[in-house]
């Protein structure tokens, strides 16, 4: 069982009972690229969409945003080419700022923990899709769609296809990929965020382990029980406790 199988099941549970729209896309990158109304590929956009050129905004922190990637070696868990949308599609969002959820589920028998960082690179579409930008300085997915691209036919299906093309072209170990988008409301995105928190814990452990294999520690072992200074800290705590009992300890971090 892969590290994220449980979370993939949780995404399935999340989708059950919700009103969804589904798009089924071809599996191969060449077929995915056919008949796209906007350019997809490196340097397809100049990197930014100015406010005055914006048609809609996705995942502004004031509205809510949640995005994550999960992967598995078990290809039966992921429906290749499936894009699921909960909520309105881009053309219905003129001038709107809506909450946004984005889940990328990936499968391939050869996937392993080494792939984690590579797939993360491609979840933020960067300059890969004409008319779409994900803001760089936000830790969550906060996107902008341009007026021009919507006029050409940009929608969530195109965004999903672009993510699949980007991911499958750059990570050949991927055999299947499924995408979920949420634009419905804050509550739906918040519930997705609960899965995201669990996913993030697993993700962090994987990244730490991968770098550890390479000889780098990303974290410090700050467990009090294994710290050689524990005796000193215990002594200080005893002194503070004794002072408090005498009523002489000062508040918090203040001195003087």
């Amino acid at each position: 069982m892969s590290k994220y199988d449980e979370h993939i099941e949780n995404v399935d549970k999340y989708l059950r009972g919700r009103q969804v729209r589904e798009f089924n896309c071809p599996p191969s990158v060449d077929d995915l690229k056919k008949d796209l109304p906007v350019q997809v590929g490196p340097r397809s956009n100049p990197g930014i969409i100015l406010r005055s050129d914006m048609f809609a905004e996705l995942g502004n922190p004031a509205e809510g945003s949640s995005g994550f990637i999960v992967w598995t070696e078990d290809t039966s868990l992921v429906r290749d080419g499936r894009i699921t949308l909960i909520g309105p599609d881009i053309p219905d969002l003129e001038g709107a700022s809506v909450p946004f959820g984005q889940v990328l589920m990936i499968a391939g028998e050869k996937l392993d923990t080494e792939v984690q960082e590579r797939i993360e690179e491609y979840q933020h579409i960067s300059d890969y899709l004409e008319g779409y930008m994900v803001r760089s300085s936000s830790q969550s997915i906060w996107g902008r769609v341009s007026k021009d691209s919507v006029a050409k036919g940009f929608n969530m299906e195109i965004l999903g296809k672009a993510l699949m093309i980007n991911m499958k072209s750059n990570v050949p170990e991927i055999e299947a990929m499924e995408v979920v988008f949420v634009t419905s409301n804050k509550d739906d995105v918040k519930q997705l965020g609960e899965i995201a928190v669990e996913v993030d814990d697993v993700r962090k452990d994987i990244i730490k382990a991968v770098w550890k294999e390479r000889g780098y520690d990303l974290d410090c072992d700050l467990d009090c029980n294994s710290c050689e200074s524990k005796v000193t800290c215990d002594d200080i705590r005893d002194i503070i406790r004794a002072q408090k009992e005498k009523g002489t300890a000062e508040i918090g971090g203040s001195e003087g």
């Binding site: 990197g47 993360e120 690179e121 933020h124 300059d127 760089s136 990244i207 990303l218 974290d219």
Partner: peptide
Amino acid sequence: RGLAENVIYDITRIVKDYK
């Protein structure tokens, strides 16, 4: 102050997003 993971994340995002 860390975590060192911030270094990896920031460099990766900035290099790509800012060309």
